[in-house]
């Protein structure tokens, strides 16, 4: 038997990243192709409807004279066909986080579930280098893919944004466009990776990651409009393309309660809806019928010293808000991945 020579120091150098990159590509190219394929199918739908939306919008804007019945009809047609986000809007809203979870959850859990980690972690590269190569390329890849997909959604919705029917700050558009899309993909990925490491099984990891992402989406939808203090206006015309947050009434600069507004409106028989800040004139119809006089309740209130205040986020804040959302999502994703690395280093077989 040959005796073992002293440890050669040359062999203590780590395996180059480029080789690990090849490993990642070979291991996950099928998954990558499947994901890109699925997204391509959705992309085709977006391109087709985007083109339809453009021709419908162009037909409406090219129409002359602009206030003719025919042109109003064209605008109505455009609005009725495309302004409602519908099911696809809801799906698109969650897509970055869902794709991120799908990509992240199996990475560690499949190795742990099938036992191949005993192969992978005992090769010369070692587990931390192996995991770094996989997780970094996975995170960057999924973020880049979803950011590109977000750009496509922005392009598709451009007529809606131009027309002012739907602001790009709207919760069905904001999270899946711009860099927020990359942020949501990163968070979904990180949650999936960590869940996979904790569960050690693919399916529970994906389910957990989905649940966590829905919770985070809810948080985002709730607090997004307050990342920056909303602006207020007493003008009845909302600034173009802005996102309305809430409306209320003031008198002499002091906010008045809905009861006070309602009692003030009692004279004209209208009702104030506290939650929406809107005036419903269901009762006004009957008073009109009885008295035969037509009074606009809003004008009535304004004439009596009230002012309607609207809080909103202007369209110009789209990018600042995007960066804020991207910032907290990325910080959260990095923290989760940090925990995953910490656990992975200590994890016994």
């Amino acid at each position: 038997m040959t005796a073992i020579a002293a440890l050669p120091t040359a062999s203590a150098r780590p395996v180059p990243w480029l080789r690990l990159a090849w490993v990642v590509w070979r291991r996950y190219r099928t998954m990558l192709i499947a994901t890109v394929g699925a997204l391509a199918a959705i992309a085709v739908y977006l391109v087709v409807t985007g083109e339809q939306m453009r021709s419908s919008y162009d037909a409406a804007t090219a129409c002359r004279p602009i206030d003719s019945t025919a042109c109003m009809y064209k605008f109505n047609l455009f609005h009725n066909s495309y302004a409602q986000p519908g099911l696809i809007g809801a799906v698109l809203m969650f897509l970055p986080a869902i794709i991120g979870s799908f990509a992240g959850a199996p990475l560690l859990s499949r190795e742990l579930e099938t036992g191949t980690f005993r192969y992978a972690w005992t090769q010369g590269a070692g587990r931390m280098r192996w995991a770094t190569a996989i997780l970094v390329s996975g995170a960057v890849g999924v973020a880049a893919i979803m950011a590109a997909f977000g750009a496509l959604i922005t392009w598709r919705n451009q007529p809606l944004l131009d027309s002012g029917f739907t602001p790009r700050l709207h919760q069905t558009i904001f999270p899946e466009t711009g860099i927020a899309a990359a942020g949501w993909a990163l968070v979904g990925f990180a949650v999936g990776v960590l869940a996979g490491l904790l569960w050690r099984r693919v399916v529970p990891a994906i389910v957990t990651a989905f649940a966590a992402c829905f919770g985070l989406e809810y948080l985002g939808a709730t607090y997004r409009s307050h990342y920056l203090t909303p602006l207020t206006t007493t003008s009845l015309d909302q600034p173009l393309k802005s996102l309305t947050i809430s409306q209320w009434w003031t008198k002499g600069g002091v906010r008045v309660s809905s009861d006070q507004v309602t009692s003030a409106l009692g004279a004209v028989g209208a009702q104030f809806n506290a939650s929406g800040g809107k005036i419903t004139s269901a009762a006004a119809g009957s008073s009109n019928g009885a008295g035969g006089t037509s009074i606009d309740p809003t004008q009535y209130l304004i004439q009596h010293g009230y002012a309607q205040v609207t809080s909103y986020q202007p369209d110009s804040r789209y990018w600042p808000l995007q960066w804020i959302e991207f910032g907290w999502l990325t910080a959260l994703a990095l923290a989760l991945l940090g925990i995953a690395f910490w656990l992975l280093r200590r994890r016994p077989a």
Partner: peptide
């Protein structure tokens, strides 16, 4: 592919 994979995960 297993051969290729292992060769890329090791120096030798």
């Amino acid at each position: 592919d297993m051969l290729h994979l292992t060769s890329n995960l090791n120096l030798r």
